[in-house]
Amino acid sequence: MASPRKPPQLYEAPSSTVILGPALVWVGLLALLAANIGLTFLPLGRAKTAVNLGVAIVQASLMFAVFMRLNRASALVKLTAAAGLVWLSFLFLIGSADFLTRPMISP
């Protein structure tokens, strides 16, 4: 390579976190699952969808960050993951430009 690169991240970890780290996240994920199911039965009205999805996104982020180790990944890998989400947002945003404004024309 042109310039010597930073060596990739070392995941070196004391062996206690081999189980402990993931275990904590696992407990967190299960707690969030329980919370999300509980929230489903609260009278949240129109906010419910957002709340449910919000909890799911927290769960997904935990998985991404810890289980999939994005927290320690190289910038390139983080960028790649972000690109997937950003392009997905293109589909949602621009696609919605049609579906959300169409009723304004022909109800």
Partner: peptide, 29 residues
């Protein structure tokens, strides 16, 4: 919902196990 919740828990747990597998290998366990 019951089936769905059980399945979610199963998969979350499986992810936990998978993640431990990778880390264990790194410390030669």
């Amino acid at each position: 919902l019951l089936f769905g919740a059980i399945n979610t828990a199963l998969l979350l747990t499986s992810s936990f196990a998978m993640s431990v597998a990778g880390r264990a290998l790194e410390v030669k366990r």
